[in-house]
Design a protein around this nucleic acid. Structure first.
Ligand SMILES: NC(=O)c1ccc[n+]([C@@H]2O[C@H](COP(=O)([O-])OP(=O)(O)OC[C@H]3O[C@@H](n4cnc5c(N)ncnc54)[C@H](O)[C@@H]3O)[C@@H](O)[C@H]2O)c1
Ligand SMILES: NC(=O)c1ccc[n+]([C@@H]2O[C@H](COP(=O)([O-])OP(=O)(O)OC[C@H]3O[C@@H](n4cnc5c(N)ncnc54)[C@H](O)[C@@H]3O)[C@@H](O)[C@H]2O)c1
Lengths: 220, 220
DNA sequence: AATAAATAAAGAAAAAAATCTTTATATTAA
DNA sequence: TTAATATAAAGATTTTTTTCTTTATTTATT
């Protein structure tokens, strides 16, 4: 990978950004159970993370904890949410309202994580014009018009792999600045368009490999 | 994280295991287009990876390339598949045939990645007894019996978060050795049960944070 | 046949991340 | 009030991962 350019605002380690939502989910659950303060060692124990790692991660949010007591759980939740930008909610468009796309549309929790799917797009007559919950499936040929009118910046890509590159380019042209890509295609887009890949294959590979290793180990 | 125990067979870096399926997908596409040999620099260019990283990753599979020529694409695909264990196909059970579960059941590509969903389980009368493609949705109370009879080792968990821990424990008791967990819950299971989390929240966090940083940057 | 060029392979260095250690501080309990 | 203790915070060390450098090999070219 090329050496990525650094920015004073961009010095948060990606592993930290990935762990923070896990803490957040756990903290919300704990809060529901009436917990008022919580310490890093407890969080670490529950989530199988090194306690100093937890402290370091939480330090990025600017929230202060107190020795012997821990963090105020309310402050901590608020702090993580603000740090990750989950307090504002971006509008998002989804393209490819098939199996996976429909599952994502019907998942309201994303709202707590910074965005909300407000419309879906497809080209198949079977799905254009239908609804998923309260989200309409529109024809992709109105994507550009609507995206610029509504200033939508986040796009979710769940089309078949074959058309992914082409569709992604259209999305970028329509003003989409960040694409959450569920297809296995490595998208090539103009500089400045953020692509976040969720590769299930990679996860599968780790799982299958670990299972193979374990079964092999148990044999001898 | 605790210092993980090392095993002579387990020294493949996880980043490598995660990259190999990406190479694999790209190579299969290239093969379809008639490519016979391919070099690491080309793969690296296409997938935005450092070429020496590609060479190192591919070296783990044992496949040999030739200077000035590259790798035989057929050997390479076969080598990666064998290395990752994708040539054999595990049977898998899915629990929670809701939005996400249904999408996964209907995704035949997993077969090329080492496993096949042969049945789904749920507790809701709305879905028990229905079909997803050629996969039946059965009641979860027959999970244990079927899992041990068919010696199923892989379970996919797509239930609501609230019941995830409980369901996962049942799965482990039924002989499941590896759980692919899509819920945001950190599962606590007996030693030896492999858990692979696919946390969409983590991906969302990275995306939203990058977008925020970029929009902020462009403002000044 | 000799030479040049591309690239795999191996090793070294650098960067990033995780873990360990120390210190300071706030709280509880004696 | 004092001492003990838990823990946040900061710093150092280690480990892991990536990137850079060198070497050797193979093929194409002259
Ligand atoms: N289903 C899964 O569990 C799963 C898992 C991992 C990855 N994926 C990936 O996600 C993507 C979608 O998978 P799926 O199973 O939902 O497929 P799907 O076929 O069910 O859905 C794809 C949808 O995209 C639409 N589409 C096709 N061409 C289009 C275009 N040019 N513009 C707009 N829409 C278009 C189709 O009409 C269809 O509705 C695939 O790339 C797949 O590799 C899916
Ligand atoms: N839908 C998404 O896009 C999405 C995205 C990220 C994460 N997730 C996670 O995946 C999980 C499933 O999400 P979903 O949207 O498919 O939910 P869903 O409600 O559509 O599906 C859950 C299914 O599990 C079944 N179920 C409930 N209790 C059960 C039990 N004890 N045993 C067996 N089955 C049981 C329900 O009947 C239902 O069919 C959730 O944990 C969610 O957080 C979903």
């Amino acid at each position: 990978m090329k050496t990525q350019e650094k920015d004073s605002r961009d010095i948060v380690p990606e592993p930290t950004v990935k762990r923070l939502p896990l803490y957040l989910h756990f903290l919300k659950k704990a809060k529901e159970n009436g917990v008022l303060t919580i310490s890093a060692p407890i969080i670490g124990q529950e989530l199988e993370q090194d306690p100093t790692q937890v402290v370091k991660d939480l330090a990025y949010t600017g929230v202060k904890g107190r020795p012997r007591v821990g963090y105020n759980i309310y402050e901590l939740i608020k702090g993580i949410e603000e740090f990750l930008g989950f307090n504002q909610v971006y509008d998002a468009f989804l393209v490819g309202a098939g199996n996976l796309g429909s599952a994502l549309i019907n998942y309201p929790e994303f709202r707590s994580f910074g965005f909300k799917i407000i419309a879906a797009f497809d080209i198949s007559d079977d799905v254009v014009g239908t609804q998923r919950g309260d989200v309409n499936v529109l024809h992709f040929n109105v994507f550009k018009e609507l995206a610029s009118k509504l200033k939508v910046r986040i796009g979710i890509l769940t089309t078949p792999a074959k058309v992914a590159q082409e569709v992604a380019e259209q999305m970028a042209k329509a003003g989409i600045r960040a694409i959450w890509n569920f297809t296995p295609v490595k998208l090539k887009l103009p500089e400045g368009v953020i692509v976040q890949n969720t590769s299930m294959y990679s996860n599968v590979a780790v799982l299958v490999m670990k299972l193979n290793n374990q079964l092999k180990k148990n044999k001898d």
